[in-house]
């Protein structure tokens, strides 16, 4: 008989905790998968498809489902892989071999004299950054271009090329200070290894 109160207490406890868990599960239910949004926010949104998925969001979904590695995004680079690793608590792995080719940020430029107005590039552009209609020459809206290069292969006349974004005093960045040697106009600066 001594065991009865213990059993009752345990049963009551189980009941209360079960009810609490059930309530919390319904009350604080999370709609959708917040992880996909978080992953997507870390991806560069170039929409280039170099990861093998048709855009950044599909790649984010694949990562969230653990279907894809986190090191498949060349525009995001090593830094991007590192941040994904931080977010997901996975081990950081450097960019996979086929992603190693240096992806240079740039914008597409259509040589308007050669464009035949075939609209193939318009259909290829993942962010609708190319303007034009059939048999009209097309043009790239440079501020919207992500530099994904997806418009290059479909062009039948190869009139699209990637132009590097030029460096100007406005977008120039101060470099990280090197080990100090004051620069002079006459002598070339030397970095002292330290």
């Amino acid at each position: 008989m001594e065991i009865l109160p213990a059993v009752l207490v345990m049963a009551l406890g189980a009941l209360i905790l079960g009810a609490a868990i059930g309530y919390v599960a319904t009350r604080f239910k999370v709609e959708g998968d917040p992880m996909v949004e978080k992953i997507n926010a870390l991806l560069p949104q170039t929409q280039c498809g170099q990861c093998g998925y048709p855009g950044c969001k599909p790649y984010a979904e694949a990562i969230a489902k653990d279907d894809a590695a986190i090191n498949l995004c060349p525009p995001g680079g090593d830094e991007g892989a590192r941040r994904l690793a931080d977010l997901l608590g996975r081990e950081y792995t450097p960019l996979s071999a086929e992603c190693q080719k240096e992806s240079k940020a740039g914008v597409a430029l259509i040589d308007e004299a050669n464009c035949i107005g075939c609209t193939l590039c318009i259909q290829a552009c993942p962010v609708d950054a190319i303007l034009g209609a059939a048999k009209q020459m097309h043009t790239v809206i440079a501020p919207f271009c992500t530099g994904c290069e997806l418009c290059l292969p479909p062009c039948p006349v190869d009139c699209i090329e990637m132009k590097a974004i030029p460096q100007t005093p406005e977008n120039w960045e101060w470099p990280r200070p090197a080990r100090k040697v004051p620069v002079s106009l006459i002598k070339t600066p030397v970095d002292i290894p330290c």
Partner: peptide, 29 residues
Amino acid sequence: YFRFAKDQLRAAAKNQEMADQARERFEFR
């Protein structure tokens, strides 16, 4: 160091802005 960090932050903010815009345009497409 501070100029360097500020410029890096500025560039990162710009990239983020570009990425947000690209995501919106991609989703709209």
